[in-house]
Design a binder for these strands. Structure first.
Lengths: 111, 111
DNA sequence: CGGTTAATTAACTTGTGGGTTGAATATAGA
DNA sequence: TCTATATTCAACCCACAAGTTAATTAACCG
């Protein structure tokens, strides 16, 4: 619905089929047929999912003869990740943990 | 839409109004009226958004007389964050960066 | 009790998401 | 050029999301 980047990204991720497609693409490029193979739905349906992902900037497509290989594009995930991190808390907890680890490293470095 | 937890979470986050509501709740509890105030839409519409957020587990609601204060619940964000992190890469880049920082700390600790 | 405030439920409209099937397009290869 | 393969486009269906207004429930207060 709303077409701001963050909304597009989250909406694209809100479908298990699309998440599975992205997961598959994390292992490397793939054609539409290859991507569609695991799913119990028509090729056209998968093609539509790819369009959604493309509109969200989560994949890009090349052209190799009659194939249109899809590649994962992770840039939009940065914004999504940042948004979530802002509200996920608890930052202090994590800084505390990092603090302890750093102190331990310093101890080990100076015995 | 599919009702697995991850899909519910991402779908809930895919709307700017709902994200704004969550942002507001990060500053503390609020009633439905308070949450609705900034938006140019009916109270009922906001109430529906809250229901979506509640179903996704992103808010919980107490009861104080006729008020139903909403509280931010960040637990579902963990799963979402984890999913994104898995594909966001580049882990190696970040480990490299952390490596450099650790080495620097070790240098400073032992001159 | 009656009135006011807070919030939800109900019924409805409209738009769109996710799926289908069938036709169209583009390219490789015989 | 003709055919097979890969992919998209178009038209359609159904369910639901997001909004509306109107009615209902729940609790406080005079």
């Amino acid at each position: 619905m709303p077409d701001d980047q963050l909304s597009l990204t989250f909406a694209a991720l809100a479908d298990p089929t699309r998440r599975a497609i992205l997961a598959r693409l994390a292992d490397g490029e793939a054609t539409v047929n290859e991507l569609a193979e695991p799913f119990d739905m028509s090729l056209q349906a998968v093609s539509k999912h790819l369009k959604v992902l493309e509109r969200a900037g989560l994949i890009s497509r090349g052209r190799d003869a009659q194939w249109r290989p899809c590649r994962l594009e992770t840039a939009p995930l940065d914004g999504a990740s940042e948004w979530i991190a802002r509200y996920r808390g608890n930052w202090t907890d994590r800084f505390d943990r990092l603090d302890r680890e750093i102190k331990q490293i310093q101890q080990e470095g100076r015995p």
